[in-house]
Design a protein around this nucleic acid. Structure first.
Lengths: 220, 220
DNA sequence: ACCTGAACACCGTTCAAGT
DNA sequence: ACCTGAACACCGTTCAAGT
């Protein structure tokens, strides 16, 4: 009887295992030693399939932002369609703890990220926006999707603390600032620390899309 | 004759020396050993004045975003005034290489950051915007200032490469994508990789401010 | 109270050697 | 060609011991 031979090491298996570590314990728990351990091998073996940790993170990010297909752009609903794509990217990243942090210094150039870019372009071009407005808008919308996903994950990451207690702490800090120097910050403490589901995210998304809509006759 | 006694170690001296390292070589070059070395001591000595590296970074960020005073808000010029504050924060961070990266996971709560918040609030309240719109707007504007500063620093950080060559590389990548799957990305490659000074930053800033202006009668 | 040397517990990555 | 053990060069932080 042959010993139970391990599954061969593949790029795909490495990426899937890495993602499961991120899902279970967060991005900080992912390191080459731990990952190799989980795969029943040594850290050096990973480098035969992945150039380095940075490339591994690229692959994870691309996997997370994978959307579905490019829907048929409807010029009458372009603002809502754009929002749907942004929400989709945010949700995709948000489903993997603080993985969004790995997006930040990266120009998303993986195949799945490019599909999202193409979706954005299709919707914005159909909306009749000028070419340069379309291009810049895609950039900003992608930036907004990733940075808000990251911000969100910060609260989720501090699992040692009660999130409500943390909000309360911030509220007290703002409220307690010297009134002479920070009258408005103290006065607006409740609004500044308001945390109602996706309300803050939707506010920014709405502002951005409205602003882009206002550019319809600019830069042409 | 007493030996040339070194300046005593102080929090201020630590922060200033740390900033000079960041200015000279970038954020990655800043570590506790290197910093201690520059101060003529050992790494352990730093912990008597600074809780840890994270707190040190907080102090650096706060120093960098230090603006001037709160200008008198002019309701007729509120959009331009908001832009000025955002540009100021971005410029402050941009003056210190890739220090902006240290802002990302952080809620800016240092004294100088709070001055900026108060400035924003004064301008937006004077503009007559609803309280919750004011609060959310400050959040988004600060996020935009820091994330664009960070994005900008990414190009500057790769000093080994010619920035123009890097742009050209991205252009070629977009242009070379399969036309059947990515027709718009390939077609819009020039606009997607356009890099003209602060044009991209100003576009996003303008979109955001226009969007916020459109919220004048929402959430009230 | 402030400082220090030395160590601890971790990293990403490389490289010669194996199969 | 793929894999491995062992090491290299680096981190942030701690702690007992000094002054």
């Amino acid at each position: 009887m042959s010993p139970p031979k391990r599954e061969p090491l593949t790029r795909d298996r490495i990426v899937r295992t890495a993602m499961s570590i991120v899902d279970d314990e967060g991005l900080d728990a992912l390191n080459m030693r731990r990952l190799a351990d989980e795969l029943g091998t040594g850290p050096a073996s990973l480098y035969a399939h992945v150039a380095n940790k940075d490339e591994l993170l690229q692959l994870l990010v691309d996997l997370a932002v994978a959307g579905h297909e490019i829907p048929h752009p409807d010029p009458d609903r372009w603002q809502e369609q754009v929002k749907e794509v942004v929400r989709g990217i945010r949700a995709g990243l948000g489903a993997h703890r603080d993985l969004a942090r790995a997006c930040l210094g990266r120009i998303p150039s993986g195949p799945e990220a490019m599909v999202n870019v193409e979706r954005f372009l299709a919707i914005l071009v159909a909306a009749g926006l000028p070419r340069q407005v379309v291009a810049y808008s895609v950039d900003i919308l992608a930036l907004y999707a990733t940075t808000t996903a990251y911000e969100e994950s910060l609260y989720a990451a501090r699992d040692d603390e009660d999130p409500a207690a943390y909000i309360e702490e911030a509220h007290a800090y703002f409220r307690g600032l010297p009134r002479e120097q920070f009258p408005l910050t103290a006065d607006l403490a409740p609004e500044l620390t308001r945390c109602e589901g996706d309300e803050r995210f939707e506010f920014g998304l709405d502002a951005l899309v409205r602003g882009i809509a206002a550019m319809k006759h600019d830069m042409s």
